[in-house]
Amino acid sequence: MTKLIAFTSIAPVLLLCACLDEVEFDVPNEFQNTVVINGKIVKGNPSTVEVTVQNLFDFAFTGESFLNAQSVQLFDENGHKLNLPVKGPGTYELKIYPNSGFDVEIGNSYGIEVKLFSGQSFESELAELVGVPKMQKLESRLVNKEIINFVSEELEVQPVIEYIVNTSLLSDGLERTNLKWDFNRTYKFTDDSSHVCYVTTVVDADLIESVNESQITSSSLDDYLILEQRISQQMVEGQYTFVIQEALDENAIIFWEQVRALSTNNGTFYEPPPGQLITNLKQSNDTEGSVFGFFYATEHDTLKVYVDSTFIDLSIPVCPRPPRAGPPVCDECCSCPRFFSTIKPSYWIN
């Protein structure tokens, strides 16, 4: 859309009289203080439930957008309920261990109920827990590719790391399922105080990679490219990349495909027209009330792969930082406790 707009400005560009102004809409009442609730239950040992509650925020994000709820509950198809404790602002998480009295099983259905201090109450539809097929292989490989240099905006041949998987699309019931992947990484660096730090982040916050089983005919993905990662100095001391595969039901895959369409639209003519995100939540005490977000039930399968820095031609470490240019973590990585740790993960091999 952006480029369409830009294109339509070509005639005014001729005339040097096109204008681009911010415009303020009168946001319809139904969007004033609209609540967005997202969550999922993941079968595992233990199973986990995570829910976030936030206000739909205007185009300038502030941390105040997250909402603290009066209560957040998980329920199943039999009416069993569990309260979710607060994990952080607007964030609620719960671990459910086996034999806790609340069964988390493939084929069962689950939902959430959220009550706010304002009196608003929201409830999701029941979502069936979908079992995830296991990945047979995760590999990384270094390849040279023509990519755009963000600085020079010119095409350059650069090495990138490609991640490929082999996985079945068949879950336990031999039913084809939709897949979505999340990508995390943990990399190591040594700060200026000689502390060895391990940092865990998402690989690319903007990336949503998924496969809709209805659009492919095979029952498996072989050597399927799921991620390309540019190399960086953060890989110098080594990096583990985690691929988290989850299964989605037919509604959840639509939700995530729509999220991807909305968030990655970069203005080419070929992109689909935008629309309103689907939701499986509703406001229980006001059927006309507006709410966005999605709750789904899934299972994860995670594989990790070590990216060996020895085959990456990198000579500049994260630290020491150059004068006035490096990250503050070089002073003391432990000063940034949220994603940084000096504890060596158990899986780290060297």
């Binding site: 707009i5 005639a11 005014p12 096109a18 204008c19 681009l20 102004d21 911010e22 303020e24 809409f25």
Partner: peptide, 8 residues
């Protein structure tokens, strides 16, 4: 949110 004015 931006508006584009072709002839401003």
């Amino acid at each position: 949110a931006n508006k584009l004015s072709i002839l401003g």
